[in-house]
Simulated scan of single mutants.
Amino acid sequence: METISLPKTTSKRKIEYCRSKWKVHDFEVWSGELICKVAVLCMDGSLLVWVGGDKAALSEMALGMPQEHGSLATTLLGEESSAAGLARRLATKLQCPVYVCCGQTFDRFTAPLVEKGIAIEFKEHPECFR
């Protein structure tokens, strides 16, 4: 069998490495016991909020888009639940697209506690949400 030699190609392009412009902020929501963990990924022009437990899971995902009068939200993955409402309210508050990903489901008692925990964290660390 004959071997074929390929010509070497080199690039003269200058590659510059820079730090990521994404900011990551994580915290926990407690009410006597751990309710959930939250990770906020602040990207250029949008925000991703992951809410879940100890396991990395994704059961639902929603997108909130700010409008001139309020915001709209749609469920991208899973059933219609609290993720869409949270995405809509965050998009209204921050005036940017907001993705909300949930790794666990919350009932009518824990869902308001999660939203309150996120609101408190937003008040204490607004730079992590912009």
Rank of each mutant, 00 (worst) to 15 (best):
V40C: 07
A57P: 06
I15D: 08
L86C: 13
A91L: 05
A84P: 11
A83Y: 04
V98C: 11
V100E: 09
V40K: 04
S5W: 15
A84V: 15
Y17E: 14
S81N: 09
R13G: 01
L94K: 13
T110I: 02
T9W: 04
V49K: 02
F129G: 01
R88E: 07
S81C: 12
V24C: 12
Q67K: 14
V40I: 14
K55R: 09
L58K: 14
G64D: 04
V24P: 11
G117C: 07
Q104F: 00
V24N: 13
V100L: 09
Y17D: 09
P112S: 03
V51M: 08
A62T: 10
H125V: 00
M65H: 09
V49Y: 07
Q104K: 03
E127R: 12
A73Y: 12
A56F: 05
S59R: 06
E28S: 15
W30P: 07
C102L: 12
C42E: 08
K23P: 08
C36I: 02
E80Y: 14
K116C: 00
S46A: 12
G70W: 09
F109H: 01
L77E: 06
R19Q: 13
F129P: 08
A111H: 01
A87M: 10
L6W: 14
Q104A: 05
E127I: 05
T75Y: 15
R88K: 15
G78V: 10
F27H: 10
L76C: 13
G70D: 11
Q95C: 09
K23D: 05
T105G: 11
C102F: 03
G52I: 01
E68I: 11
P66S: 03
P7R: 14
F129D: 00
K93T: 11
E80C: 13
V114Y: 02
V49N: 00
D44G: 10
R89M: 13
E16C: 02
G117I: 01
L113N: 03
F106Y: 05
I4M: 09
W22S: 14
T3L: 13
L94T: 07
F106L: 06
A83D: 05
H69K: 12
G64T: 03
C42S: 11
A119Q: 09
